[in-house]
Nucleic acid binder design. Structure first.
Length: 496
RNA sequence: GGCGCCGUAGCCAAGUGGUUAGGCAACGGUUUGCAAAACCGUCACACACCGGUUCGAAUCCGGUCGGCGCCUCCA
């Protein structure tokens, strides 16, 4: 194992070394479940899914914990707007989130702790911080004192005295008045008896935003994590505050490595809920194969911005150039797999030479991911692999051509490596290809039965050597957006 | 105001002191009844600009311009 990862805390790449080499303890901040997952969530959790797959495939055991924040003001407010119980709304979106993650090919985490099931742990941690002198009560609220923790600011590399508190204009004046220092943050917020809340030694209230992750990660993974991850927007204040309160409480390093993925951008601007420029994952799934969204997320390094484009089309379905390109590349992968698996057995001869791009793929992929999870380099290796496998198939399908058994086997091992490390290529090729084609046909208003009937008509014309009639049918279908692909095995079709 | 990131061929995107990244588009070829797919080749000695360091800089240093992010809603 020789994975190098960029660590936000040090600002440098370093070997990833879990305290227990037999078990990497990874905690990733999960969603606040008051809405559907958007493309930003999709990207983030794809990154950590690849991380855990890569570690496991390289022989490391991983305990992957990703929480669900099911207690939050946004959930309560959204529930009130909809006349729904907050816990019901949260449960609904938790389930939707799991479905979306599964469709993206993200394996479920080993533990998915919920805030609502960790109130005792949260309260105990707050008490511990009060006892250690790092937190104080004020009118039923409890605040963490940033001045009590010497390292405050070390993760986000900012200086308490220099940073302009409230520069984003979102601070709450009433709360600020109760704080000893403007940067102090709430561990516990008092609530009216009529509001959603829990009994605590500090009174009726709810946990603050950051404390739940500290409490849950310690409960499930211990006081020092091997890796803590999340979106770049969590560096400050969320992770900075988690780090401060955790290290203040335990006097131990909170995480051995901090990993943050870059944003998804729309027109060079961050995709975000506040800007209203986001697409939910399931909205995109209506237009694009979910696995293509996964592929798209891998075309860029995880710390770089992922540029997303869409075009409104008057009277038609919107276009997503980047996602569509990713989907075409995914089709190419599955078409290649299908060709390989359908090579006639009599064309495969024993032994033989294996092209480097095929035999070397598993190692090339590992090497790419070992270098700070460089997925674009991994995909470059995939391009070489696919070209090489197609060359192999071309050679075998030529008259009197053959393919070497060793090369076919090596290609299968390469596809396994792709699936295990990147989580790409996990579906049945024929099913994916048909689903993509049928979805495009539907979007174009093309009926499958009609196309198939015309293919039969054309086959009859061709068998009578009436090529003029056959070509008229091809033109007719082409005008409808249907491309015909003749092969020795018959005619298939796709949407141009 | 503070801290930080980015600017690479038509487009997207890796790399980051000396050696072909890769994809998409376009064009040429092999193949095909026609066509597509697939494969091969070309576009590609590209790295915002100005200085400096160096035998050598897209890569390191300084500055300039342009774009973006965070500074208690955010993945």
């Amino acid at each position: 194992m020789s994975l190098q990862l960029y660590d936000t805390l040090t600002g440098q790449k370093a070997p990833f070394t879990p305290a227990d080499p037999q078990n990497a303890r990874v905690y990733v901040c999960g969603p606040t479940v008051y809405d559907y997952a958007h493309l930003g969530h999709a990207r983030c959790y794809i990154v950590y899914d690849v991380l855990t797959r890569h570690l496991r495939t390289s022989g490391m055991r991983v305990t992957y914990v990703r929480n669900v924040t099911d207690i939050d003001d946004k959930i309560i407010n959204r529930a009130a707007e909809r006349g729904e119980q907050p816990d019901q709304l949260a449960a609904r979106f938790t389930e939707a989130f799991r479905e979306d993650m599964e469709r993206l090919g993200n394996a479920a985490p080993d533990v998915e702790p919920k805030v609502s099931e960790h109130l005792p742990h949260i309260i105990a941690l707050v008490q511990r911080l009060i006892a250690s002198g790092n937190a104080y009560e004020a009118d039923g609220d409890v605040y963490f004192s940033v001045e009590s923790f010497e390292g405050y600011g070390k993760l986000s590399h900012r200086n308490l005295s220099e940073h302009e508190t409230g520069a984003s204009g979102r601070t709450d004046a009433e709360q600020t008045a109760r704080k000893r220092h403007p940067a102090d943050f709430a561990l516990w917020k008092s609530a009216e008896r009529s509001e959603v809340g829990w009994e605590s030694p500090f009174g009726w209230g709810r946990p603050g935003w950051h404390i739940e992750c500290s409490a849950m990660s310690m409960e499930h993974l211990g006081e020092t994590l091997d890796l803590h991850g999340g979106g770049l927007d969590l560096v400050f204040p969320h992770h900075e505050n988690e780090l401060a309160q955790s290290e203040a409480a335990t006097c131990k390093p909170f995480s051995r490595c901090w990993m943050h993925n870059g944003f998804v951008e729309v027109n060079k601007e961050k995709m975000g809920k506040s800007l209203g420029n986001f697409f939910t994952a399931r909205e995109l799934f209506r237009h694009i194969e979910p696995e293509a969204v996964r592929f798209f997320a891998m075309t860029v390094h995880y710390r770089a911005p992922l540029g997303f484009e869409f075009e409104e089309v008057a009277g038609g379905a919107p276009r997503f150039p980047g996602l569509e390109e990713a989907e075409r590349r995914l089709e190419y992968l599955y078409k290649t797999q299908l060709r390989l698996r359908e090579l006639p057995a009599e064309r495969i001869v024993p032994e033989g030479w294996v092209p480097d791009a095929i035999s070397g793929f598993p190692k090339a992929l590992k090497r790419a991911l070992d270098d700070d999870l460089n997925m674009p380099i991994g995909l470059a290796a995939l391009s070489d692999l696919l070209a090489s496998v197609n060359e192999l198939c071309d050679a075998a399908l030529r008259k009197k051509g053959t393919a070497q058994q060793a090369a076919v086997d090596a290609a299968e091992r390469a596809f396994e490596a792709l699936q295990r490390r990147l989580g790409i290529g996990f579906q049945e090729p024929r099913e994916v290809l048909e689903r993509i084609r049928d979805r495009r046909a539907e979007a174009r208003g093309v009926r499958r039965e009609w196309v198939e009937q015309r293919i039969v008509d054309r086959a009859e014309a061709r068998s009578n050597k009436d090529f003029a009639a056959a070509d008229r049918i091809r033109v007719e279908l082409t005008e409808a957006g249907v491309e015909l692909l003749d092969s020795p095995a018959g005619t298939t079709w796709q949407i141009a």
